[in-house]
Computed example of a mutant assay.
Amino acid sequence: MIKKLTIKEIAELSGVGKSTVSRFFNDGYVSETVREKIEKVILEYNYEPNAFARGIKARNNRFIGVIVPCLDSTITSTILMQLDNRLRILGYIPLIINTNHDICLELANLENLSRLNVEGIVLVATEVRDEHREFVKKSKIPVLFVGQICDETYSIANDEIEAGKIIGNYI
Rank of each mutant, 00 (worst) to 15 (best):
I171W: 09
N112D: 07
V124D: 00
I10L: 07
L110G: 09
V128M: 06
T33D: 15
V146H: 02
I75P: 00
F63W: 07
A11I: 04
V118R: 02
S77Y: 08
I79Y: 09
Q82G: 13
I10G: 06
M81S: 13
E106M: 11
N46H: 15
L113V: 08
I38D: 05
T126R: 12
S155F: 02
L90W: 06
G120N: 09
S22D: 13
I121N: 07
R88I: 10
S139C: 10
N169T: 01
S139F: 04
E36V: 07
T153R: 01
M81A: 13
S155R: 09
F135R: 06
I96Y: 01
I89D: 12
K165S: 01
F52L: 15
Q82E: 14
D72Y: 09
L87V: 07
S139H: 03
T99N: 04
G65H: 05
Y170D: 03
N26L: 02
E106C: 12
D72T: 14
H101A: 03
N60Q: 13
I97L: 11
E111G: 05
Y154F: 06
F25W: 01
L113I: 10
T6F: 05
I167S: 11
R115Q: 11
K4R: 15
V66K: 02
S73Q: 07
I79L: 15
Y170K: 14
R86K: 13
V136F: 01
C104A: 13
H132L: 10
I64F: 08
Y170V: 12
Y92N: 06
A163C: 05
N169I: 00
A11L: 01
D27Q: 13
V143S: 10
G17W: 01
A108F: 09
L107Y: 04
A53V: 12
K137N: 11
T74F: 10
G15L: 05
V21E: 01
K8Y: 11
Y154T: 12
I171C: 12
S31F: 07
G15V: 01
I56T: 07
I38T: 04
E39M: 12
F52V: 15
L144H: 02
K137P: 00
V34S: 11
I67W: 00
E131W: 04
E106K: 12
Y29S: 14
P142D: 10
D27V: 00
A58I: 03
L5M: 14
I96K: 00
L13C: 10
Y45W: 11
G168K: 10
C150H: 02
E9T: 03
Y29K: 15
V124M: 12
G55Q: 04
L90C: 12
